[in-house]
């Protein structure tokens, strides 16, 4: 069943966010909520709970889209994060027990510096940026999300990958005591694993995200740190990362292991290659209300100018 009550957020906990977003965005999203009509969820309602931990010194990025972002509530209550359950409401409802601190990340494989590092070691040296990106889920829905993070390439470089490092593999934490989806019967094979080609990982659009809407990443979004690759389907954005490995060979990825005919290693957003069970030509914009039309899906999720050159000569129909 998909119809569920909202998690309890008292009105007193809802703070105004207009000081966070710039004035233009604010007016833009408020306008959207109004125009979307009677039944629209209040997209752009400024609803970050007061209990969220603000992140310091975030600078804006020219790589951000100027499309109005989804509400904090949309972003934190409609998620695919199977570690907390397969329903898109599950991560918001079942992730309360998850403790994202203290946190450690192991870095290994083809690099000069390897070992296990604390969250502070990993994130500390990097200036934070806000990156407002479109997110296109493989299930043909999309959001606009104001992530906070830093370029993944800057992080990887610090560990001095060797010339053998052609790919980067990532792994999510396994913690069944706090992640009910990992206890279930019909789950995926844990840990969730993902990977990128080195040039994809080093691309300036690819970020390690540690926050959203100026606050620390909420649990349903993959606290405390997750990958964002905005021109790829959402499932490439592996969450709650505990291992980063530099590899010579293409690493296995969870969904392509699960259903190789439906999900590939690349998973670039591509409106011309349909999923076997649904069309990828258009997408449902989340938060736009009952009467909003579907949107046309853009090649590489609209980031083609920046990334198409990575795939020159690659048959994107076969390498989906």
């Amino acid at each position: 069943m998909l119809i569920k009550k909202a998690p309890d957020i008292k009105p007193s906990e809802i703070t105004s966010e207009s000081n966070f977003m710039n004035r233009r965005e604010f007016i833009h999203s408020a306008g959207l909520a109004g125009a979307a009509g009677l039944l629209a969820t209040p997209s752009g309602a400024q609803d970050v709970p007061a209990s969220a931990v603000p992140l310091p010194d975030i600078s804006p990025s020219p790589l951000s889209t100027d499309e109005p972002p989804n509400s904090f509530e949309d972003i934190t209550t409609y998620n695919n994060f199977y570690e907390f359950g397969t329903d898109k409401g599950d991560p918001g409802e079942n992730s309360g027990k998850f403790k994202p601190r203290p946190w450690e990340v192991t870095i290994d494989g083809e690099a000069e510096i390897t070992g296990t590092f604390s969250y502070e070691d990993i994130v500390g040296p990097h200036p934070l940026e806000e990156r407002i990106y479109r997110l296109r889920c493989v299930e043909a829905w999309s959001m606009v999300i104001p992530w906070v993070g830093f370029p993944l390439g800057d992080l990887l470089q610090r560990y001095k990958p060797t010339s053998k490092a052609r790919y980067v593999a990532f792994e999510t934490i396994v913690r069944p005591s706090e992640m009910p989806g990992q206890r279930g019967f019909f789950g995926l094979d844990w840990p969730y694993v993902e990977g990128l080609r080195m040039d994809e990982a080093m691309h300036p659009l690819t970020i390690m995200a540690v926050g959203v809407y100026g606050v620390e990443l909420p649990n349903p979004n993959g606290a405390p740190l997750r990958l964002i690759v905005p021109w790829k389907y959402g499932f490439k954005g592996i969450k709650s990362i505990v291992r980063i490995s530099f590899t010579e060979k293409e690493p296995p990825t969870t969904w392509s292991l699960q259903a190789p005919s439906e999900y590939g290693f690349y998973a670039n957003v591509n409106p011309t290659v349909d999923h076997p069970r649904w069309s990828q030509a258009s997408e449902r914009p989340i938060g736009a209300g009952l009467f909003a039309p579907r949107q046309t899906t853009l090649m590489f999720n609209g980031y083609g100018d920046q990334v198409a050159s990575l795939y020159e000569g690659l048959d994107l129909r076969r390498n989906f």
Partner: peptide, 11 residues
């Protein structure tokens, strides 16, 4: 509660 959630058409 909160209307029909983030994706009312799917709901």
């Amino acid at each position: 509660g909160r209307g029909l959630g983030a994706n009312p058409i799917e709901a």
